[in-house]
Design a protein around this nucleic acid. Structure first.
Lengths: 257, 257
DNA sequence: CGGCAAGTTGAGCCAGGTCAACTCCGGTGG
DNA sequence: CCACCGGAGTTGACCTGGCTCAACTTGCCG
């Protein structure tokens, strides 16, 4: 009896994109994994919880952006990490850590995999293992990069870094110099550890200096990539743009040396 | 021909601590892995580079603290992550990412493992695989937690969180209420995204409020754990301690409600 | 005991947070 | 078709936590 690729998989980026996990599977394994999986979708702002993460704790994002949110006692909210299409998030044993909630930013579709079958695939298929291992490693290193951005960069530098992060992560590029930001301003602020007001001001400033152009609130066109790169890397030269308080300057405060 | 546990392994925490990677290995595998490994030590401030990370890219920390440092163009330095005794750090393919340097904080000893033999063990030994996978997952989640701390917490809250992080990570506890901080103040500041001066002021403040007592610059005694916990969690109540600028208060600024 | 690095203390300042008002836009129903 | 509403984003004015710079103290090593 010959089996065929399940329809849901055929049009799923984890399968048709040859670098992703499911693309590495044999037909048999794919069918088996599919049988032990559960697809769901989440609307903006909804939390992923309940049966899905408990019974299918290896979560492959097939569409949209899933965020890991932490909330402090007094209500301050941060987005600790973003998970985008093609990534696999392993939430096994997440009960024992009282870590944050998984909240959808925009429309999210995902495919929960059974831990047992996932484990079996990891052992039997070296290519799939390499992809999965590389995936979690890049999550770790990305989180570390992000932590170091938050630690020492100024608001404008963080935003510049994030534009590049988006560019690197997005699978489908619309146009060479355009980057899609699949987040609302307030979520962006929560991820970068700043206020929506500040995000707005920084974008305005970057536009005034003709470094980027914001077309659609979620599409950023990079006009001056080298300058943006310098800002992201914390070059002192970027400081000449760092004029959030232009008003003060106009009011007559002396320009710095 | 009967083999014995290699001496170096016998007294290594990765082996004698039953939760760690090498403890899960059969004697044969242990001997084989040892044969394909390379131990080194690094003095404070030295970078791990050259042959070791290239030829033995799976690095098990057996003693001390290794840091991943990022440096911005204008010299600002951050510690993106800390790797402590018992942890395994996988730096395969780290060439293709222009990510930071691995710098020893204090005396570090480590055991570099060959990628091939490590991979073989991962496949053949489920218990070892679970440990290694769990290890990298906790690195990822810890980095995310840290990122979210850096994003929204105040200096005192970050420091309080870090005291708990140290307590949770340290293998050997000296005394119930004492935590060892295996970092110098300036490294601590680099990890928490603040200035050494600020770290100093915060410690002074915590001592004045009898929440902790600093005995040895690297030993912190927790006097009031619930209060420290509240501060770490961002409870508003913590604000009553948040008086870095006591001078201003003394000078007559009105107390807040 | 002398010299250097690490840590501490003080004074002043500024980047970005806070608060409040306003604009923009998509959806809804009369 | 337009008036209304509510949430997201923007703008302005002001304030403050923590950075900066500089001077000082402490601890460590030869």
């Amino acid at each position: 009896m010959t089996q065929d690729i399940p329809d849901e998989c055929r049009f799923c980026c984890l399968h048709y994109n040859s670098e992703n996990f499911c693309a590495k599977l044999s037909l048999n394994d794919l069918v088996e994994l599919k049988a032990a999986s559960k697809t769901t979708s989440l609307k903006h702002g909804r939390e992923l919880r309940g049966e899905v993460p408990r019974r299918w704790p290896v979560i492959a994002i097939t569409k949209g952006v899933l965020s890991l949110q932490h909330i402090l006692h007094d209500g301050r909210l941060t987005i600790a990490a973003l998970f985008m299409r093609g990534e696999i998030l392993d939430v096994r044993n997440s009960a024992d850590r009282k870590r944050g909630k998984l909240i959808a930013l925009g429309e999210v579709e995902l495919c929960g995999l059974s831990a047992d079958v996932f484990e079996y695939v990891i052992v039997s298929n070296p290519a799939a293992r390499t992809v999965a291992w590389g995936n979690i490693r890049s999550q770790a290193f990305r989180a570390m990069d992000h932590a170091s951005d938050l630690a020492k960069k100024h608001a404008m530098e963080k935003l510049a870094s994030f534009i590049f992060e988006c560019r690197n992560r997005q699978s489908l590029r619309i146009q060479k110099d355009k980057v899609e930001m699949p987040l609302r301003r307030s979520d962006l602020a929560a991820y970068l550890g700043m206020q929506p007001e500040t995000v707005s001001r920084i974008f305005k400033n970057l536009e005034k200096n003709e470094i980027v152009k914001v077309t659609d609130l979620s599409i950023i066109q990079i006009l001056n990539a080298p300058a943006l790169r310098r800002i992201a890397n914390g070059d002192r030269m970027g400081h000449k743009y760092n004029l959030l308080h232009q008003a003060n300057v106009k009011k007559g405060k002396a320009a710095r040396t």
